[in-house]
């Protein structure tokens, strides 16, 4: 298509240049209505008919995807992605956020919804985009052929932090995917280290559980991302920052600075040691 487009472009520009540089008698053939009919009607009708036909078949190709082996519900929220892995009956196996892991080479059905405004689900390297429209459920089936990490991004302007609404799609070898999925379904790891216990207690004491869930703890909030295995994710803040203890601490302390407008307030009131402990706890939730 690009080649064809470039050729047509060169043709038109070439003809225009000819009309300027050629002596009048050698370009007279161009100056007639038949040229307009040929170039302006016959040629485009022919080319566009072919292109359109091709387009219809490609479109159909997109539709006739195989039966998905996995169904994942992705819900766009301002400005992050709620991700739910569904079982055969449509129940939720486990929830995660801002990161989607799939087995490489297997068709996956994404069930796309929105919780607030219109978002658009897009992994540029893997497939086109599809909007998440309130009151509407769109589905999209595609597969990642090769294992790897693919960046995804909200493609429909959705408010203040539209720019910082990304995610990572991680295609894994099917075997390791199964292991990962099993791990995700488990509740949060309960480490013995004193520091981590201290961090967990602070996490609960500071009311984080009102919005976040960490399965296996009293934190069961549903407003923000599920953090049960947040430490194992590649990013926090919906693709904004890589996950490490430092970014976790910085995020918790200054969300409204890092990503102004997000629902989570800046916990700037946390003392340095406590902040570090909570961050360490979250980092440990792999």
């Amino acid at each position: 298509m690009f080649t064809g487009g470039a050729l047509i472009f060169l043709l038109v520009i070439g003809l225009t240049v000819l009309t300027i540089i050629l002596p009048q008698e050698r370009r007279r053939w161009l100056a007639q209505q038949n040229v307009v009919i040929a170039g302006g009607i016959v040629f485009p009708v022919a080319v566009l008919s072919l292109l359109l036909g091709y387009g219809f078949f490609v479109t159909r190709g997109h539709v006739g995807a195989e039966e998905p082996t996995l169904r994942i519900e992705v819900i766009g929220e301002q400005w992050w992605w709620r991700v739910r892995y569904l079982d055969e009956s449509g129940g939720v196996r486990f929830a995660t956020a801002n990161e989607i892991r799939v087995p490489a080479g297997e068709p996956v059905e994404f069930i796309l919804k929105s919780a607030d405004v219109i978002h658009s689900f897009w992994v540029p390297s893997l497939a086109g985009k599809l909007d998440m429209v309130p009151g509407k459920v769109n589905t999209y089936t595609f597969s990642a052929d090769k294992p790897g990490v693919y960046r995804g991004q909200c493609a429909e302007y959705c408010g203040a932090q539209h720019a910082l609404m990304a995610f990572y799609l991680v295609a894994m070898e099917p075997g390791s995917f199964d292991a990962w999925a099993a791990g995700q379904a488990d509740p949060a790891w309960d480490r013995v280290a004193a520091e981590l216990k201290y961090g967990r207690d602070l996490f609960i004491a500071n009311g984080c559980g009102a919005c976040h869930t960490v399965r296996g703890t009293p934190a069961t909030g549903d407003l923000g991302p599920d953090l049960t295995h947040v430490g194992g994710r590649l990013s926090i803040g919906a693709g904004t920052l890589p996950t490490n203890i430092g970014t976790l601490a910085g995020w918790i302390s200054s969300t409204q600075h890092v990503k102004p407008g997000v629902s989570m307030p800046s916990f700037g009131n946390l003392e340095s040691r406590d902040l570090r402990a909570i961050a360490a706890y979250l980092e440990s939730l792999e």
Partner: peptide
């Protein structure tokens, strides 16, 4: 950082 100043907010960095 914490090994030098235990009460710092700056965590160990990877």
């Amino acid at each position: 950082a914490p090994s030098l100043v235990p009460n710092t907010g700056m965590p160990q960095m990877p």
